[in-house]
Structure formats: C-alpha cells, structure tokens
Simulated assay, not measured.
Amino acid sequence: MGLFDQIVSAIDNPNQQASSSQLGSIINTVQQLSNNQGVDSSQTQTLLSTVGGYVRSALQQQQAAGGRSNAEAIVNQYSGTSPNAAAVQALFSPAQQQQVAQAISQKTGINAETILAMLPTLIPIVLQLLQSGANKQGSQASGGGANSVLSTFLDSDGDRDVDIGDAISLASQFLNRR
C-alpha cells in the first residue's frame, strides 16, 4: 500500500491522528509558503518530493541508530505547520543542510538560499504528514501502536510509492472531492 493510501486509511480510522482538517492545514501551509517564496506548483511538488527523500534517509538513519522509537520521537516532537529550525537541526547537520539545499536547487532550479529559508517550514510539514498515522493515544502505545504512515514511509522497498510531493498533491485532490 502506497503512502497516500496509508494516509487515507489513517483519516478513515478514528484511532489515528489523521484528519481532513490536518491534511488541509498541511496543504494550505505548503501553498502559502510557495506563494510567499514565488515558487510555482510544479517546482513545489518536486521540492517536496526531494525534501521527503532526504527526510526519509535521515529518519532511516535515526531508526538504524536507535530503533523505530527514535524515528517516531523525532516525528512526534518536530511535526507541525509552523516554521521550526530545530526540526531541521534534528535531522541534518549544518553541512548536510547546505548539501541538501544545493542538491534540491539543482533538481528544482530554486535558489539554494531560498531552499534553506524554506526548510524550517518544509521539514515540520513532512513530519506532520508522517505523524498522521500515529495512534491518538500516542504512537508508543503497546499492542500495535506503530505509526502506519511512518512505517510505510521508512520501510519502502524502493518502488517509489513514498513520494511526499505526490502524496500532498493527491491529498489536495482528495480534499477537493470530499
């Protein structure tokens, strides 16, 4: 099951944190950020997809170092729709932030400095999307309390079903039909 399917499943599950309003808030924040930075929608989707790939890699490293709970703790602590530089620092060293911005700039054509300015908003948004699969009682709950959306994101078999940009684009279409 793809990432977007997991998100829709989480929205339909009253025991998980996902909701249509949470998804709408994520989409609105992305649109506002794009408009404020003068980034068009196709660039925004590529930007989110690329940022999502780097977040996935960083969370997989956290999981390898400290287990699934380590990755979940970062998602739970730093997710949101407000800018949070600490979220970026939790995943990337200053040198890595520069490398990520340069790589994304090459893929999107967006200035690296603009990307660096956007990361404190983009990273928490990606984490917010991932947190949507957590149980309302907390993702650390015993007995199957794992975050299904985060699990799908981290355990991908490389079939590219975990694209954050695509998931947010599909979420926007999904909300428009509801």
Rank of each mutant, 00 (worst) to 15 (best):
L127F: 09
S148W: 00
Q131T: 06
L130T: 01
A87E: 06
Q106T: 15
F92E: 01
A87H: 08
I110M: 12
P83G: 12
A86H: 10
Q77A: 15
V75C: 03
I115M: 06
I74H: 01
I115R: 05
T121M: 11
P124Y: 13
Q106P: 04
P124I: 09
I74K: 02
G143F: 13
A134D: 00
P120M: 12
L122T: 05
Q128Y: 06
E113H: 07
Q102N: 13
I115F: 12
Q128M: 11
L130A: 02
G138V: 07
A141P: 03
K107E: 06
S132P: 03
K136F: 04
N147D: 06
S105E: 05
S139L: 02
P94N: 15
T114C: 05
V100Y: 01
K107R: 14
N111H: 06
P94M: 13
Q131S: 05
N111K: 04
G80N: 08
S105C: 13
Q77H: 05
Y78R: 06
I110W: 09
E113P: 00
S139P: 04
A103L: 04
L130G: 01
Q89F: 07
G144L: 14
N135F: 13
Q131F: 02
I123L: 06
Q140V: 09
A141N: 15
S105N: 13
S139V: 02
Y78L: 11
Q97L: 11
G145S: 06
N84G: 04
N135Y: 06
E113W: 04
Q140S: 15
A103E: 14
V88I: 05
G109Q: 07
V88H: 04
I123R: 00
A85Y: 11
Q106A: 15
A134F: 00
N76S: 14
A117D: 12
A90R: 03
L116G: 08
I74T: 11
N135I: 04
A134H: 00
K107G: 01
Q89H: 13
L127Q: 01
S132M: 15
T108F: 07
I115P: 03
I110Y: 08
S132C: 13
L119D: 03
V75W: 00
L127D: 03
A134R: 00
V126C: 14
S105L: 07
S79E: 11
T121F: 09
S82A: 14
S132V: 07
P124C: 07
V88R: 14
L129M: 15
N84S: 08
Q89G: 10
S142I: 15
G145T: 01
Q137E: 10
I104A: 10
